[in-house]
């Protein structure tokens, strides 16, 4: 496996991690705000706060890891994407900033404050929408080179149906992933009302999700034929992903094995996300930049990979500890504050 492939695989894996944990996080923020504003917080807020509180900073790190890593492994992305993403990137940053701070303001300073909860619930939902623009741009067709500098055509970007389908998909995915996870989490806390409500949301969002995803594949067939035909070559991955989606919905419908349902969901998104990524290969930005042209020097690549392995050796046990204490600890999850060694 070439260094380029190792680099992009590691980054793609982290981006996938961000998609999952970020979706749970942003969706939970939205459901929390929704329940506070509609006066249903007695059902949901406790469950959501219990999960969100210790992990929110971890979520943000996945994102930072991705954009720092991509500039490390592929410095030319800084030039291409840095130049064209000034406006969308800045808007994404502002949303991230509002989301992170207001989350902290609400949960550490003013619990139950409607305004704060609304701020972070709404900004959390817009973050995936604004970040997903990057995927749209990477498909090509919106960037031209003027006087040796890349320029983004905003009009074309914002009138393209592809852009809006990806936006819809990102929002649907956030709410769906989050709802499925929280169904499971609420079930573990033994809170039947919350479980039932989240289950309803999960099933409700499963259909828009699959419609938006199919719509994107259809639109790519006009927008980027090369990418589309490579996706068709990977039809079995998308097919498998679809079967896993059916599995999740089936288990939710039957009110059984919510943990397995969430596991299937992760599998579904992993397959689709990697099938999309593999078919995007070798382009980072159609048609200007591939992972081979934009790659860093060998010395840097090797030192980044070593740093990554050492970093992981440090992080995985720590993450395990975090999960053990908060996600899988029966006493904590059920809200008992009994002491333990």
């Amino acid at each position: 496996m070439s260094l380029e492939l190792i680099g992009i695989s590691v980054l793609w894996l982290f981006l996938f991690g961000y998609v999952i944990v970020g979706s749970i996080d942003y969706g939970a923020g939205f459901f929390n705000a929704h329940s506070i504003i509609t006066g249903k917080q007695h059902i949901l807020s406790k469950v959501i706060q219990r999960y969100l509180s210790p992990v929110w900073e971890v979520t943000n790190v996945f994102f930072v890891f991705f954009f720092v890593g991509i500039v490390g492994f592929f410095p030319q992305t800084a030039y291409y994407f840095g130049t064209i993403l000034l406006v969308p990137g800045s808007i994404g940053l502002i949303l991230l900033a509002i989301r992170g701070s207001y989350y902290a303001f609400e949960s550490y300073g003013a619990r139950g404050h409607k305004g704060y909860a609304f701020m972070y619930g709404a900004s959390g939902l817009l973050i995936p929408a604004s970040l997903s623009i990057v995927l749209t741009i990477s498909e090509g067709g919106f960037v031209s080179i003027v006087d040796d500098n890349p320029v983004l055509d905003y009009a074309a970007l914002f009138t393209s149906p592809l852009t809006w389908s990806i936006v819809v998909l990102s929002i649907a995915a956030v709410l769906y992933i989050s709802a499925v996870f929280l169904t499971w989490y609420a079930f573990k806390t033994g809170d039947d009302n919350a479980t039932e409500l989240m289950r309803k949301y999960a099933i409700g969002w499963s259909v828009p999700l699959i419609i938006a995803a199919s719509g994107i594949i259809y639109e790519l067939s006009f927008h980027n034929e090369e990418h589309f035909s490579r996706m068709i070559d990977l039809w079995w991955m998308f097919g498998l992903s679809f079967l896993l989606w059916i599995g999740t919905v089936w288990l939710l419908w039957k009110r059984t094995r919510y943990g397995v349902a969430f596991g299937l969901l992760v599998g579904q998104f992993a397959l689709a996300f990697f099938a999309y990524g593999i078919s995007h290969y070798p382009y980072l930005l159609y048609p200007y930049l591939t992972i081979y042209e934009g790659f860093t020097n060998t010395a840097m690549a090797i030192s980044l990979i070593i740093a990554f392995i050492l970093g992981m050796a440090l992080l995985l046990p720590s993450l395990y500890l975090l999960m053990k204490l908060f996600l899988f600890d029966k006493n904590y999850v059920q809200g008992n504050n009994s002491k333990k060694e």
Binding site: V58, V61, V64, F65, F67, V68, G69, V71, G72, F73, F74, P75, Q76, A78, Y79, Y80, F81, G82, T83, L85, L86, G89, S90, T296, N297, M300, S303, L304, A307, F308, G311, L314, L315
Partner: peptide, 27 residues
């Protein structure tokens, strides 16, 4: 990257390592 793309393209080749490791430290 957004404001100094040319710099990051150049610097990314040489000084990306500590930038990358900072993420781990913060994590």
């Amino acid at each position: 990257s957004l404001l100094w793309p040319q710099f990051m393209e150049l610097a990314g080749n040489i000084i990306a390592l500590p930038l990358f490791m900072e993420v781990f430290a913060f994590f």
